[in-house]
């Protein structure tokens, strides 16, 4: 731990107020989302607790509002703040898992391609090339559609969240694979790796203990930046109505629903989830940006 505080990273962190603010914001968002069942004033998924007569209550400070609903209620009488906290949970879960999925896949394939080279490399990189040209949203639409077609609706609703994770994750792995492959190519030819090879270490071991640690920096940067994209991709899919089922609304779903009330004066139903989404993605992106600059002394 002491090492960490002595590191360049920490030094650069303390030098950048924007980064500190965004780190705090991101932390608040994540904590609020993860601890939603403990912190949220209501449970928006408990149908039995919903009171239709409480619907469309404005935020508490506007006068007509109700102190039990700090940010007002939506069309079903759900507390907007609680819905945002639970929604952020879904958004973050999808975002993290999707990034984790594409990182794992991308790193593994990138290592493989870079280390083995030859045919494996050519094929993998060709696939990555082709997929990179397809926008992730379209890949996600396709994957989601195929699963939707293949499974009955009830089953689909239960696993919809995994489908979205898979759809977004699968569309982002080439970035990781390319970066890792590039770094691996460089590392592979370095003397210590050559030496390890000569003394007969297994390729797997070499990759794990020698090559992998050296490529983690850029991977971390891409992963952070990708988290923002993944959350936005989920929101867009949910906005188009093919994301997570409305029984587990994410921030994107909340915005889509609230969108209907934009002109009617009930702005809080869509504005607050929208702001929450933007703040969350923005703070994650700012952190990613800083991380990239900090890890790359040449100020890339």
């Amino acid at each position: 731990m002491k090492n960490f505080f002595d590191s360049d990273l920490w030094w650069s962190f303390t030098r950048s107020p924007v980064t500190m603010i965004s780190a705090v914001t991101a932390f608040v968002c994540i904590a609020g989302a993860v601890l939603a069942p403990l912190l949220a004033p209501h449970n928006p998924f408990d149908l039995a607790s919903l009171q239709l007569m409480d619907a469309f209550k404005p935020p508490a400070w506007t006068g007509e509002g109700d102190a039990t609903y700090p940010l007002g209620t939506d069309d079903q009488g759900r507390d907007v703040l609680s819905a945002i906290m639970y929604g952020a949970r879904v958004s973050l879960l999808v975002g993290f898992c999707a990034v984790l999925f594409s990182t794992t896949l991308g790193v593994a394939l990138g290592l493989l391609a870079g280390y083995l080279g030859g045919r494996v490399d050519a094929v993998l990189m060709r696939i990555a090339d082709i997929q990179l040209t397809f926008p992730s949203i379209l890949v996600a639409l396709l994957v989601d559609g195929v699963v939707r077609a293949a499974l009955p609706r009830d089953v689909h609703d239960q696993i919809a969240i995994f489908v979205v994770i898979f759809a977004i994750g699968i569309s982002n792995w080439p970035q990781f694979a390319r970066t890792v492959r590039g770094s691996t190519l460089v590392e592979r030819n370095k003397e210590y790796v050559q030496a390890a090879r000569v003394i007969g270490l297994s390729p797997l071991r070499i990759m794990r203990s020698h090559v992998l640690p050296n490529v983690l920096g850029p991977v971390l940067v891409i992963a952070t930046l990708n988290l923002g994209f993944a959350i936005l991709a989920e929101a867009t899919l949910s906005f188009l109505g093919v994301g997570v089922p409305p029984t587990q609304p994410s921030l994107g779903t909340l915005i889509r629903i609230g969108n209907d009330f934009l002109f009617s004066g009930e702005w809080w139903i869509t504005i607050f989830p929208g702001v929450a989404l933007i703040v969350m993605v923005l703070s994650v992106n700012l952190l990613g940006d800083w991380l990239r600059d900090a890890l790359n002394p040449k100020l890339r």
């Binding site: 149908l47 039995a48 919903l50 609706r153 009830d154």
Partner: peptide, 19 residues
């Protein structure tokens, strides 16, 4: 959605399948 909530309140736990 409103009906599902009302039914759930009397004990008929209602899953909504809106298409």
């Amino acid at each position: 959605q409103a009906i599902a909530a009302m039914w759930t309140r009397i004990g008929v736990r209602t899953r909504l399948n809106a298409m």
